[in-house]
Design a protein around this nucleic acid. Structure first.
Ligand SMILES: [Mg+2]
Length: 492
DNA sequence: CGCCCTAAACATC
DNA sequence: GATGTTTAGGGCG
């Protein structure tokens, strides 16, 4: 279908590869997600981000339905392993898209996995009416060899924080109040097909399995009752006001999500994705307690921790999605989680794990501890994250000691991509600025980020072609992008 | 040949 | 109709 040449001219002789610059769709998507407060967006939000942020798409926003570019976005999301789709709990909404923390060496998944996947799918669709989802796989990300430039974007990505705008309203903050009881919906769990695929002996790359689990597990929701004022933020957890504002994500918030497991048989905690995950899932063997930690480190940096925290502090409220009844995963996970001693700090406590290799444990613990204690995980976490993005192994090596320094702003971000941090929401801290500067900032921020990224990214060309790119003013008053309409988020 | 873009057929919801 | 997944094909370095 390629019809000669690129539809839209990639700028004359200039270096841009695409009409919008040198970034690929994948890059843009990554950027969008990366800049979102929750680190996850729905398809519609991604579109929105594009329209709002990338000049080239500015006018194409309205284009309903399937405009070519939207098709491409979707195509990219599905195609690359670096994008993970996680089921969105709110009922009618579309899935969340987030990026695969690990990277992906195989960018797009190679044959083997591909086959496997299709196979699974086939099976599932046909045979069991019951099960439904398909599983994403996670593969690897590699954040980015893509955009060529000399400087990797990885840095930037991570280094920038998405403005916190939302935190205020953000998500979870508010909902917490809901009642201890649990309220939230309980969506039915998804199906649990774990058993099924367990059977497949194809040894999917761990990661894949992981992914699946992730997906499934999603069903499991726990309620996060903002515990008492832990060491966290001084003052109360306070749920942020911002009533009217928009929730960045679907409303439901407090609860956080699932986790996945990482195994560990490997002695080095360092390596993420271990091998046993599979075992875990598939096997019936006794569940290692590691589970909990597992998720913490490798997969999602933030969320897991948070979840844990919730559990630990308040055992009662959590309920697990009923979704996975069949397999033991969920339950065991819970179990594991509860055990961990609350004590902050990296105390080794969890005696829990009997058999399994523990190494990782402390890692997880560490996470937990940090969170509980209220320390922001930032240094390590961030770096870790960063590292991952960058493709460096760094993290594992030293995690131990220094979890001290806390940076409020970071905290937010670090703490969790998943809305979890309800309690963290520092009330005063960052919120204040919001209003005034808000729109201001918002525009700015986004734009800035984007710009920066794009600039950096194309280091190769050093050509500054600003023309299409954001009208110069982003800084000053000029609402570059078309008037001010821009800021609103989450429309739907 | 791998990466990327575009189009389009399907499948689901 | 929106969301996702795949297949197909062309351009490029
Ligand atoms: Mg994908």
């Amino acid at each position: 279908a390629g019809v000669g040449a690129v539809g839209a001219t990639p700028r004359k002789g200039s270096s841009r590869r695409n009409a919008w610059g040198n970034q690929s769709y994948a890059d843009l998507i990554s950027q969008a997600i990366e800049n979102s407060p929750e680190k996850r967006l729905t398809l519609a939000q991604i579109y929105e981000w594009m329209v709002k942020t990338v000049p080239y798409f500015r006018d194409k926003g309205d284009t309903n339905s399937s405009a070519g570019w939207k098709n491409s976005i979707r195509h990219n999301l599905s195609l690359h392993n670096k994008f993970l789709r996680v089921h969105n709990e709110s009922t009618g909404k579309s899935s969340w898209w987030m990026l695969n923390p690990e990277g992906g060496k195989t960018g797009t998944m190679d044959n083997s996995s591909k086959l496997l996947k299709s196979r699974m799918r086939a099976k599932q669709t046909k045979n069991s009416p019951n099960s439904s989802q398909q599983f994403p796989k996670w593969g690897v990300n590699s954040s980015s060899p893509s955009s060529r430039g000399s400087l990797e974007e990885a840095d930037m990505w991570t280094s920038f924080r998405p403005r916190t705008s939302s935190n205020a309203s953000t998500v979870s903050g508010r909902l917490s109040p809901i009642g201890p009881g649990q309220e939230d919906e309980d969506n039915l769990g998804e199906e649990s097909l774990l058993g099924r695929y367990a059977a497949g002996s194809l040894a999917p790359t761990l990661t894949e399995t992981l992914m699946e689990e992730l997906d499934l597990i999603d069903g499991l929701t726990l309620t996060l009752p903002c515990p008492p004022p832990p060491p966290c933020c001084p003052g109360a957890p306070a749920s942020p006001p911002s009533p009217g504002t928009r929730p960045p994500c679907p409303s439901v918030a407090p609860r956080t999500r699932r986790r996945s497991a990482t195994p560990s048989s490997t002695p080095h905690y360092n390596s993420h994705v271990p091998s046993s995950l599979e075992a875990l899932l598939t096997s019936d063997s006794p569940p290692p307690s590691d589970v909990l930690m597992t998720q913490v480190d490798p997969l999602m940096p933030g969320p897991g921790g948070v979840a844990l925290m919730a559990l630990g502090s308040k055992p009662s409220p959590l309920l697990v999605g009923k979704g996975l009844e069949p397999n033991k995963v969920a339950p065991m996970a819970l179990q594991a989680q509860m055990h961990p001693p609350p004590p902050p700090a990296a105390a080794p406590a969890a005696p829990v794990a009997p058999a399994a290799p523990r190494q990782q444990q402390h890692l997880s613990q560490m996470g937990l501890g940090m969170i509980l204690s209220g320390l922001s995980p930032d240094p390590s976490q961030l770096s870790a994250l960063k590292a991952q993005h960058a493709g460096l192994p760094a993290v594992g090596s030293h995690h131990g000691g220094p979890l001290a320094s806390a940076n409020p702003s970071l905290l937010l971000q670090a703490s969790g991509p998943f809305g979890a941090p309800s309690c963290f929401q520092g009330p005063a801290e960052r919120l204040p600025t919001d209003l005034d500067i808000d729109m201001f900032t918002e525009n700015l921020d986004c734009d800035v980020d984007y710009i920066i990224n794009s600039d950096l990214m194309d280091g190769d060309g050093i050509d500054f072609n600003f023309d299409p790119v954001m009208p110069g003013a982003q800084g000053y008053a000029g609402p570059a992008t078309t008037q001010g309409s821009t800021h609103s988020w989450v429309p739907s």
